[in-house]
Structure formats: C-alpha cells, structure tokens
Design a protein around this nucleic acid. Structure first.
Lengths: 223, 223
DNA sequence: ACCTGAACACCGTTCAAGT
DNA sequence: ACCTGAACACCGTTCAAGT
C-alpha cells in the first residue's frame, strides 16, 4: 500500500521459487555467462551460500529454471480436436519459448533427460495414438520430433551467444554465411555454397514449421 | 629404432596437430571434464601457456578436435550411386562417431555453426539434388536431418556423462526410466509412462536409423 | 620464436560463525 | 533453521622471464 510496492525482498524468506525467478531475470538480461551464484546472491541481497539451502547446486537450478519456462510455454496448448494440430501447437510453443529465452536452448540440448524435455516428449507423444501411429512406433516418432526441437534449440542458443544483442537475426545469418565462404573450400562444399546465398533471407520459425511438416509426413507412413 | 619407440615428444616441436591428438586422448579417457589446460600440458610435458602459441583458446581447441573426429568419420562415405543410401551412410557415420566419442555429441549440439556441423550439413545436403528435392526445399530437408543428429548427439553425450563408465546402455536407460516414474505424476504424463516400460529394451542405433527413415519418407513428399 | 610456470581473475561450493 | 561471507579448490588465460 505504500509508495514503494516491493523492496521488502531482503526481509522475505528465501524460497526456491524466488531464486528461480531471479535466475530467469538474470539469464534474460545478462545471458548464460551472467548467471553466477555471486550475481544471483547480489540480486537477492543475500549471501552466496544461502542459495544452497534451497537448491542443491547450479545444475539443479538450471534444470528448475528451464522447467519453469517450458511448463509455462506448454500451459496454453490443449491437446484438443485435431491430433496433428496438437503436435504442431506443442512444437511451436517450445520454439517460441526458445526464441524468447535462448539460454533455454542451451539447457534443453545439453541435458536431454531433464524434466523440461520429458514434458515436451509427453506433449508431442500424447497425440500419436490419435494419429494412428502403432504403439511400438510411437517412441520412434516422438523421438524424431523431440530431436528436431533439441537441434533447433542448440542452434538458436548458439546464435544468441554469437550475435551482438542489438543485431537482428538476418544480419547475423549473413555473417555466418560469409564466414562459411571464407573458411571453406567451395569445391569441396558445393551444397553449403548454394545454401549460404539464401541463409540471410530465411525465416527460422518458418523453417522450423516446415521441418515439423516434413516429419509429420514421414510419421504418416508409419501407420 | 630403439626399444622405446616414442618418448621423444618433449623434444618435438609443439604443433596444433599434436595438441589436438592429445586432447582427443584425454577426452576419450577422462571425459569432458578431464580436458583442462593443466591436464593437457602435463600430458604434453610442457607448460600451460605453451598451448596458447598454437591454439587461441579452449573453444578453438574443442572446435578443432571435433572437426578432426567428424572429418575422419565422414572420410569413408562416398556419395556413390544411390542418393538415399548416401544420406543414410553419412548419418550413420556421424552416429557411430558420437557413439565412440560421446563428448563429440556435446560439442556438436552446443556449437552448431562450427566446421564439423558444416561438414555434416554438406554431406547430407549433397544427395538431395539427386533425390529430386527442389532447390528451395533442400535447406529445409537438410536441416531436419542435421537436427536429428544434433538431438541424438546431445542425448548420447548426456548419457555418457551420467552413466557409470562400466555400466552398459541398457541398465543406464533402465535407471532413467525409473527416475521418470518417481519424478513424474503418472496421470499427467501418460505417454511417458508407456514409453518408460520399453526404454531399457530399445536400441539407440536402431531408433536413430528408424528416425532417418521417417525423415526420408517425409522428404520424399517434398518432390 | 617458442616455451616456462607463477600469477591473475573468476568460478562453484563449503563451512564455521552468527541470528 | 536459515543466513552470512570469507575461504577453498580449481578453472582459463596472461605475461614477465627464460632459451
């Protein structure tokens, strides 16, 4: 009710939820390397060791933070009427979460057995029955979809790490393509040369979407 | 010609190739965390700083080491007669390289713009023309294949990090499945529960191969 | 020019001491 | 029980001094 609505945090008891929230803010603001226990404890106005009363170690913290973001991203996607539509919705929800928080990409790709990945796995797998994919093939089908996400995740996160924060995606990809051309023998990498010309014009989200379509078309042959 | 065939390394001049070779040995023996500049310089009987005369930093070293392994793995695969066969050969060669050196998986998934990934990209893309995929779709098609590799790469590397070195893959996957079941609400993750039962019986390489088939079937619809 | 290895800056994590 | 913050072990990297 006072003028300063929330500066009382240092008197609040520390909780895992508060720590996770602070970690998200630091990761979004300062990037992956910005998240240290020193930065985190400073942000929370506490000692570095205090965090260990609520989180076992940094790995568990990153796992919790990633699950938080993915759980929120998947909350909207009801597996409603059309099963293909449900799968596309889950895939694009995850893509958009990675787009908004590139550090999530690093974490998903690096630790593929963590809760967040299981969430995604279950999300895309749940519609396969309705799609007519036989039981024994459902694991294979879901894996391809999840690998597509993990692959894109790594690519996106790497882009965020390399690109200057203000540069847009297109100019970044232009630089990547230019680097390809200098680093590589054109005769030995003919396909790469062809691709490089179109790289800066391409739309990541659209390519991801097309990839999902390709995979779904392939999954249809499993019926 | 003497009894001790090669202990003269400390008198050899240090080269990037020698450093990369030593790094591979350490990574294969001691794993990802085992590769430090201190361990590396000890292995090479030199000072820690000497390495920086031949390699800019650790990131460049890892990039070079990964490219070394992938280049060797791809050396056998001629893009010969049948284009689908060529793609499958490249995909499986990379899979086997990751299987033999799980740390390659971490590196591929973490830095998807590095030379080794470009090599793979070019390898799978080169056969798409012969497959009848139209030019504008070739980038999309190759991306799906590369993402499949990167996704599997991360998964494999994570497994190697978690599993005890002597345990086989099947018992490791059994533990993963068991952890799923305790960490997760069975009602909320019905697909995961179904999968967990079959996880320990499954063959990674076979699943990877089936995934490639699914993607190739999907790519066929692009013609 | 290349190598040496101590020193620097900076991590994650621990733990005795406080409240 | 929870928090504090100095201390510890260990990184990647630098650099003055050697050869």
């Amino acid at each position: 009710m006072t003028d300063e609505q929330r500066a009382e945090r240092r008197t609040d008891p520390l909780t895992k939820a508060v720590i996770v929230q602070a970690a998200v803010e630091i990761l979004d603001t300062a990037g992956e390397q910005g998240l240290t226990f020193r930065a985190l404890s400073a942000h929370l106005s506490t000692g570095a060791g205090a965090i260990y009363h609520h989180v076992a170690n940094k790995s568990e913290l990153l796992t919790a933070v990633t699950d938080e973001v993915i759980a929120a991203a998947l909350h909207g996607s009801d597996d409603s009427a059309e099963p293909e539509h449900g799968i596309r919705a889950v895939m694009l929800d995850v893509f958009d979460a990675i787009d908004a928080h590139p550090w999530v990409g690093t974490q998903l790709a690096a630790e593929p057995w963590q809760p967040a990945v299981l969430r995604i796995f279950n999300g895309v797998g749940g519609s396969l029955d309705a799609l007519g994919v036989p039981g024994p093939s459902q694991f294979d089908a879901a894996s391809v979809l999840v690998h597509h996400i993990l692959g894109v995740a790594g690519q996106y996160a790497a882009g965020a790490r390399l690109a200057s924060p203000d540069a847009d995606r297109s100019t970044f990809l232009g630089k990547v393509a230019a680097r390809w051309m200098t680093a590589v023998d054109a005769d030995e990498y003919p396909f790469l040369v062809r691709i490089a010309k179109t790289l800066s014009e391409h739309d990541d989200r659209e390519q991801f979407r097309v990839g999902v379509d390709v995979i779904l078309a392939g999954i249809a042959t499993l019926r």
